[in-house]
């Protein structure tokens, strides 16, 4: 477990400095832990597990600047997963009481589940609802893989507007996901 902590932390720290391959590996590994963490806790709503995995990944990406390398990665990721799960359950409010003890940080990296099920909510559909100043930078840079300069040229936006558009667009997308 501590080997996993070290490995994941190394990947995230490299990802934070701009290493896309390391960051991809981090998100990929984390998604397996998230799935294994959420599935038994959301046993009554199995169809919604993958939605919440995606929502949590998006949240982790958007809040990644709050990670401090002096801090255990497990505690950080677990706190976000737990927060997102409680937020999700509150949104479904009143339907079912939460009967799961939440002192489970120890077991957070204990299991992996790599098999992703279909998400019910389609993030691509939500992406299409964003205004162009967010949607186009995300589309060109994050989905088609164009550079900042190429995206600026294709959209007629300035390079800084493109960067801001990606950043704010992913936050706006996270807000849409929550609704």
């Amino acid at each position: 477990m501590s080997a996993q902590e070290d490995q994941l932390k190394d990947l995230l720290v490299r990802g934070l400095s701009g290493d896309g391959a390391a960051y991809h590996a981090f998100l990929k590994a984390l998604s397996a832990f998230l799935r294994a963490f959420l599935r038994p806790r959301l046993a009554r709503v199995p169809d919604e597990v993958e939605d919440l995995v995606q929502e949590t990944l998006l949240a982790i990406h958007n809040q990644r600047h709050t990670y401090d390398a002096a801090q255990p990665l497990t505690a950080w990721a677990h706190a976000i997963a737990r927060y997102k799960m409680i937020d999700f359950l509150r949104r479904r409010a009143g339907r079912e009481a939460l009967d799961d003890p939440l002192e489970d940080v120890e077991e957070f990296l204990g299991a992996e589940e790599t098999e992703a099920h279909e998400a019910r909510r389609d993030i691509a559909t939500l992406l299409a609802k964003l205004p162009d100043r967010y949607r186009l930078p995300i589309l060109h840079m994050k989905l088609e893989g164009l550079s900042v300069a190429e995206t600026a040229k294709a959209t007629g936006m300035s390079e800084s507007a493109v960067k801001v558009g990606v950043h704010r667009g992913l936050k706006a997308l996270a807000a849409l996901v929550r609704n």
């Binding site: 995606q54 990944l57 992703a116 998400a119």
Partner: peptide, 17 residues
């Protein structure tokens, strides 16, 4: 969008923090 595609999207050219 599948989770793999989402991860692909988030991890493409991530802005350094």
């Amino acid at each position: 969008m599948r989770t793999d595609q989402l991860i692909e999207m988030l991890a493409r050219e991530p802005e350094p923090v």
